[in-house]
Computed example of a mutant assay.
Amino acid sequence: MKNARIAMLALSMTAAATGSALASDTTAKTREQVRAEFFEAQQEGTLIANSETGTTFRQMYPGRYPAATASNTTRAQVRAELVEAHQQGTQIANARSGATYRDLYPNQYPTDMASTVTREQVRAELIQAQRNGTLIANGQSGATYRDLFPSRYPTMNDAGAAMLGLAPLPNATRMN
């Protein structure tokens, strides 16, 4: 008796949600046709799960229902993509954060980037950043040493700031 009530309630909610489609259908349906439509909607997740919001079971539990659109990808292609993602470390390791295996274990995967900058150029850039205060002092805020200790670094004119990619410092005396 209870199952019959639940089935009738679900069927009435489905009918209410698709009211315009049912209203345009003037042919009488048999009991078996209605049951077949009900079971099909149940399998597809299109039954209303929450009558207040109109949310369907598919919307509430998307992992329980098959994808609505058919894929042109074969099983072999999906397996090949999975193997490639596993080898490259792009497979999701932590669903909550979305971190990949490469993010969690960077030493286990080769780097993809080939640098065009020499070691000497990097050292020269580091020394220049230390001298002019543009080296990052706080990784969380991104503040530079110039931001934290402005008195240690001389102010610069607009040409010097433009050369370093900095905007001129506000309210500072400029060296000309």
Rank of each mutant, 00 (worst) to 15 (best):
A124H: 11
T30Q: 05
M13V: 00
P170M: 05
T155V: 02
A80W: 07
V83L: 12
E81W: 10
L166E: 05
M163S: 10
S71T: 15
A41Q: 08
A99N: 10
P62G: 13
L166P: 00
R58D: 07
G89W: 00
Y61C: 14
E125A: 11
A67G: 10
R123G: 05
I48L: 06
A85M: 08
T155I: 02
L82P: 01
M175Q: 10
P168H: 06
R131Y: 04
Q140K: 09
D158C: 01
N132W: 07
F149G: 00
N72T: 14
A124P: 05
V117K: 14
P150G: 04
Q43S: 15
G45E: 07
I6G: 02
T18C: 06
Q87N: 15
P62S: 13
V117C: 13
N107L: 12
N107D: 15
R119M: 15
T100Y: 13
L47H: 14
S115D: 13
M13E: 02
Q121E: 13
M163V: 01
A28K: 06
T90E: 03
G45W: 09
M156H: 01
M163W: 08
N3A: 02
G160T: 00
R79A: 10
A80I: 05
F149S: 01
N157R: 02
S20C: 03
A16V: 04
I6R: 11
L22K: 06
G165S: 03
A162Q: 03
A16W: 04
F57I: 14
I92Q: 13
N171A: 07
G133V: 06
T116N: 15
T73A: 12
P168A: 07
V117S: 15
A159C: 00
A129D: 04
A85H: 04
T134P: 06
A99L: 12
D103R: 08
E125Q: 12
E81Q: 12
L9V: 01
R123F: 09
